[in-house]
Design a protein around this nucleic acid. Structure first.
Length: 592
RNA sequence: GCACCCGUAGCUCAAUUGGAUAGAGCACCAGACUUCGGAUCUGGCGGUUGGGGGUUCGAGUCCUCCCGGGUGCGCCA
């Protein structure tokens, strides 16, 4: 159901419903595709009527007439090849701008088209042995933006985080602490908790590698050396102690995890991200084991001779998948089964369960969904893997060993420092830092969101902190400019007026209106395709057109009727870009 | 070996999902009125869309075969 507004439907997505209904009633053989007219062509909207031509015996004019019949407020239209381009009348734009003014939050920057949707969006699901890095930042920015996009369509969203707090990697950190850092704590070491634990992990890995190298030098094959190294044996022993519930091990485990959570929370807070629900793998894996046992009894899975549990997914083209080790302990997919169940038990009304996870787990997620189907979970088809590409450096992939991992906290600091240099030295220190934080994050977050999620991105530090061109600060600057202009107009008692001052608009005005008009459809497609990059491109193009107007057409220094109308365009732009930035989770600076 | 993803200007990315003359940013070059904030705006340079074949009114997009890069694939999480 789409909202109605006193019979006037000035927004694209609202009009489209009505037009399509009329076209069906008229018996058109196919519905024409509607799109924005490209900038180098005359028009606002373009209808692709090529598919209709055969029905009208090649008479393009007749086809165009049929398409145009239900569309009011057309000023002018023309047919070129299979394309029908139209301009709206100034009355249409008056209605459009009036509607923007009166109900920007209901039908324009926010709609109700996904009111029935209830989503859980899981991100970023970190391991607890290392601090967050650049890859997590991409995940966090994307998860947050997709959440906000759906909320703008009226959906309810549960932001969920799944903490991987269990497994051999934690044992390694614990051993690292015992051997090289005890009795230090993050406080006494003056380190953020997640970084402190990360140091423990790295110290372990370094010592472990030395042992492996020594064994290799003795002529032991690598596969064996990795297992025979004393430190690895100790780590496995510690993991078994943990599973048995050894009090001392559990205490250390809990203490170190709390250090990590404190560190994570600080980073999440800096990014303005909070979660409605947190799952811990240590609590969900037992649930997963139960599910596997049930599946075995039901004959959906099978036991191998050594006692390990398996699923045969060869019919789905996914081969054999192990579900429990021969000693009965769980593997990663086991807890995933448990967590998936818990999600729908905790929130039975979910219509979509989204996992924001890197594309290296494409296969894993396919297996998970296939297993859920096999288990007869009716909601299995509601599970969606929002897969995204890796973040690489110009020198290649980030590698822990080579120390090329870009730390999230360090990067946020660097962005802040870089932006701070460009702030006005005459401002109070506190304000300079507030602006630097907004602009620094704006640059980084836009940079991480502007590329199609499925593609890998190459993180060029120099380019990411750029403030010119296709960047976050470009959009922020447009927002600030519009804000300032509006304030000045208010001071000089110039109110915005949606009524055009003439029968024909300036091409620059019309170009901005065209882009403003398309906002709801971009919000819709960005959300439903889980692709914030669409909105990033939209916001850039919108701001480019606004800057064009700002630079070339006077507002405060124009005739009163002209200025009042242009001010209305400024106001509409400001509402639109504000919504875009909010949906991308990019901060809105008051000044910059 | 098998599966999936990717390949577009020097670099980073688009292309309304099969539609018009493949567009932006960065970089480089040349410009912007004694007006609203120059983190801006206006031009210019830059392409055999990795390659061949096919499908049709029409292909960067679809099918196929190569080339190149990436990620996974029975006990890491």
């Amino acid at each position: 159901m789409r909202a109605t507004f006193a019979g006037i439907m000035p927004f694209w997505h609202e009009q489209l419903d009505r037009w399509q209904q009329a076209w069906r009633n008229e018996g058109l053989p196919a519905l024409p595709r509607v799109s924005l007219t490209p900038p180098d062509r005359q028009g606002i909207l373009t209808f692709n009527i090529f598919p209709l031509l055969s029905h009208f015996r090649g008479n393009a004019q007749a086809a165009a007439e049929a398409v145009l019949r239900p569309i009011p407020h057309i000023q002018h239209s023309e047919v070129i090849k299979g394309f029908l381009n139209l301009h709206f009348s100034v009355e249409f734009w008056r209605d459009f701008l009036t509607a923007v003014l009166e109900r920007a939050e209901q039908g324009y920057t926010r709609t109700a088209i996904a009111q029935q949707e209830h989503l859980m969006i899981e991100y970023p699901s970190p391991n607890t042995n290392k601090p967050l890095h650049l890859g997590h930042l991409r995940n966090l920015c994307m998860g947050e933006s997709v959440s906000r996009l759906w909320e703008r369509l009226g959906a309810r969203v549960v932001r969920a985080n799944l903490v991987n707090d269990r497994g051999i990697h934690i044992s390694k950190s614990m051993l690292g602490w015992k051997k090289f850092f005890a009795p230090l704590t993050p406080e006494t070491a003056r380190k953020k908790g997640d970084h402190f634990v990360g140091d423990c992990y790295v110290a372990f890995e370094k010592a472990y590698k030395e042992q492996v190298d020594a064994l290799l030098a003795q002529g032991m094959p690598e596969s064996e050396a990795l297992i025979q190294a004393p430190l690895f044996q100790e780590a496995q022993h510690l993991l078994r102690l943990w599973e048995k519930g050894d009090p001392e091990t559990l205490h250390l485990w809990k203490t170190m995890n709390d250090w990590v959570y404190a560190g994570f929370d600080a980073t999440f807070a800096r990014l303005g991200i909070r979660f409605d629900k947190v799952y811990y793998e240590s609590q969900t894996y037992t649930e997963g084991k139960k599910i596997v046992e049930q599946g075995l009894q039901a004959g959906l899975f099978y036991r191998a001779e050594d006692g390990s549990a398996w699923a045969d997914l060869s019919a789905e083209g996914l081969g054999q998948k192990i579900l429990l080790r021969r000693d009965g302990t769980s593997v990663y997919i086991t807890q995933d089964l448990g967590t998936a169940d818990l999600k729908f038990r905790d929130y039975p009304t979910l219509t979509r369960s989204v996992y924001v996870i890197g594309n290296e787990q494409d296969h894993h997620m396919r297996v998970l969904i296939a297993l859920l189907r096999r288990l007869g979970r009716t909601w299995a088809d509601k599970v969606y893997h929002l897969s995204y590409g890796m973040v690489e450096l110009p020198t290649g992939r980030m590698k822990t060993r080579e120390g090329t991992v870009v730390d999230a906290d360090d990067l946020l600091e660097e962005m802040h420092a870089r932006a701070y240099e460009l702030t006005d030295p005459n401002l109070p220190e506190e304000e300079r830092h507030a602006i630097a934080e907004a602009v620094g994050q704006g640059a980084l977050r836009f940079y991480l969101l502007r590329t199609d999620p499925s593609k890998n991105i190459v993180f060029d530090p120099a380019e990411s902190i750029d403030l010119k061109g296709f960047t976050g600060p470009f959009l922020q600057y447009g927002y600030v400019r519009a804000q300032r202009l509006y304030e000045k107009a208010t001071q000089s008692h110039l109110p915005p007026n949606p009524s055009p001052y003439a029968e024909t608009l300036h091409p620059i005005e019309e170009s901005l209106l065209q882009q403003l008009y398309a906002l709801p459809s971009f919000l819709e497609s960005a959300a439903t395709t889980y692709n914030p990059a669409l909105l990033a491109h939209y916001g850039y193009e919108l701001t480019r057109r606004f800057n064009e107007l700002y630079q070339n057409l006077p507002v405060l220094h124009a005739e009163k009727a002209v200025g009042a109308f242009r001010l209305m365009l400024v106001v509409a732009y400001q509402k639109a870009i504000g919504a875009v930035l909010e949906a991308l989770a990019i901060p809105l600076p008051a000044k910059m």
